[in-house]
Amino acid sequence: MLLRNVFTKTVRDLRWPTFWVSLGCGAMTAYFAILFPTYSKLIDLNSLLEKMGPAAKLLGASMGDASTLVGFLHIELFSMILPAAIAAFAAGVASGFTAGEESRGTIDILLSYPISRRRIVLEKWLALSLACVVAAVVLWVFAIIGAAISASVLPGDRLAAALVMLVLLGLAFGAIALAISAATGNRGASIGLTVALLVVMYLVDALSAIVDGLGVIRPLSLFRYYMGDDPLRAGLNFADAAVLAAVAAVFLVIAVVAFERRDLAA
């Protein structure tokens, strides 16, 4: 049933990675949501962060109010751990889409059937998008259940807005990784470059809060659009979402064009 076409085959290939990423991120979020009241009684996080001063901002605590669950989740998860996890997942998977088939040698057989290179890239991409959405939905459910257990306030629509941004960020980095691997056939280079870009962009965004000069290049960081407008509190910023979606789309097009033009590895 899952072997009907490249899309369903890719869904099948991704079923376990998606399961574990969803479960991991979901459980982590639920854990923080459940334990939040205990934490906030034990430690006054806000004063702790104040004492840390600028260093706290490096950890992503640039605008959180740790006395609420929303702020707490923002600081603890949405600023660093979740985007890193979803971006690494998407980039790791996407980098293997064409380069993996090439290095295994299966691309020869696949392309000898009536399916175009473009279609292969797009169907695999669709499967990755679905996997990211599934992970986000699981995370939403876990977080809402966790918040309910600890009787904390966590608006479902705002959480959903933050997760939309999370998925878009993951897809943007996934598209970058896909473009590099589709253009070069080199999965290692694709993962390496994408992770390096992720770290640099994160640091540019985090440091721009404390280093004046970085403000100029901050718009180049995808993290600026991801949490720049704090969707957990303010809801979805459509302009920011459009930027991330556009980046993903542009790199997807680059991936398709590059892959269509290249000599494939023997």
Binding site: V6, K9, G105, T106, D108, I109, L110
Partner: peptide, 24 residues
């Protein structure tokens, strides 16, 4: 086409692979 260095989706069974390629 049967390539010289025949590489197939090793995680599938023969039946599954033939189903997949047949569907394509």
């Amino acid at each position: 086409y049967v390539p010289g260095e025949l590489a197939l989706y090793s995680e599938l069974t023969g039946r599954q692979l033939l189903d997949y390629l047949g569907n394509l």
